[in-house]
């Protein structure tokens, strides 16, 4: 082909026919974008707004940055941080287990199991978490002791006093985990339902039992749908643990409050707590990204390393 500029390919000859062959010319696209003054103005306003906000915060003497810095690594604050992490991880783990159990019951053939599961989600999603937390903390008023033995007032083998068993931590864990389980049940159920029924049939045709179908085929695929909202729940839980402060749960917010009741640095201590909450949620979102990638396995025609290069905001070819 000997096309002059502006006439790629002669009429009747597809331009691709001679691609890479003799004389095919490289035609780079270096087009000029139309101006977008509106976007520039909006960006300038937003940038000014952010800088101004930052300035007023930094120079504000009422914020006591020195106090914030001093208490950020305070032993009591770090202790509260550790309790927050424990409460979050434990209540999410128990909540996920309860959620899977409730979701499997919900999808069972037995109306009694379905009913029990529905009752659970109905009740614990229907009452405020704050009320549940206070209730668990005061459970001793309803059931002064717990025992193992013959039901309906029969003899007991072992018995515990509620006042010894229910500390602020166990009450918080009970409240958070059982409440979370009710939400996780819906997330897990949606995940299980998202799996193609043909997958179940294929597994059954191989001779797998119901339990094997669930564990080997359905749940691993449901995880792909379950994980993103579970990550959200986890991040949300990191902050929801602060509600435990109403029963003095010794987590981040409770210890911050205790400190400001002594030194009257209310805002500074709240900022200390907030900084730690932001650190926790940021770390959790990075973790979520990696877990999601693990469960994306097999769901793309192209391997991850190729797909990264295709993404508009990816790392490029690095």
């Amino acid at each position: 082909m000997t096309g002059t500029p502006g006439t790629p390919g002669t009429p009747g000859t597809p331009a691709l026919a001679g691609a890479g062959a003799d004389g095919e010319r490289h035609l780079p696209i270096a087009a000029i974008r139309p101006p977008r003054p509106g976007r520039w103005i909006a960006a300038a306003v937003a940038a000014f707004g952010m800088v101004w906000l930052l300035y007023t915060v930094v120079v504000n003497e009422n914020l006591h940055w020195d106090v914030i810095a001093a208490y950020l690594m305070d032993g009591r604050v770090l202790g509260g941080l550790w309790v927050t992490i424990q409460l979050t991880v434990l209540s999410m783990a128990i909540g996920l287990a309860l959620g899977i159990l409730a979701a499997v019951m919900q999808l069972s053939g037995s109306p009694v199991l379905r009913g029990a599961s529905a009752l659970y989600t109905w009740f614990f999603r229907g009452t405020p978490l704050l009320v549940q937390l206070i209730f668990w903390f005061n459970i001793g008023l309803v059931f002064p002791s717990f025992g193992l033995g013959v039901p309906f007032d029969g003899p007991k083998l072992v018995e515990w006093q509620a006042n010894e068993l229910i500390t602020p931590f166990t009450a918080a864990l009970l409240g958070l985990a059982i409440n979370e389980g009710a939400y996780m049940a819906e997330i897990v159920r949606a995940g299980i339902r998202s799996v193609d029924p043909g997958q179940r049939e294929a597994a059954e045709a191989l001779g797998m039992s119901h339990r094997q179908v669930l564990r080997r085929v359905v749940l691993p695929q449901a995880m792909r749908v379950i994980i993103p909202p579970t990550g959200n729940q986890f991040i949300s839980m990191l902050k929801t643990t602060s509600m435990v402060s109403v029963i003095a749960g010794a987590e981040l917010l409770t210890v911050s409050q205790r400190i400001y009741l002594g030194n009257f640095e209310v805002i500074a201590m709240l900022i200390v707590a907030s900084i730690w909450y932001i650190v926790l949620t940021t770390v959790a979102s990075v973790g979520q990204h990696f877990v999601e990638r693990r469960f994306e396995r097999g769901h793309h025609a192209l391997p991850a390393r190729v797909r990264r290069n295709l993404r508009p905001f990816g790392k490029g070819s690095a």
Binding site: D196, G198, Q199, E201, A202, A205, G207, V217, Q221, G298
Partner: peptide, 16 residues
């Protein structure tokens, strides 16, 4: 069922 193989129209391979 173990003794009976089945091949489906839509394959139904386990994607993971």
């Amino acid at each position: 069922r173990q003794g009976i193989g089945m091949v489906f129209q839509r394959f139904h391979l386990f994607p993971h």
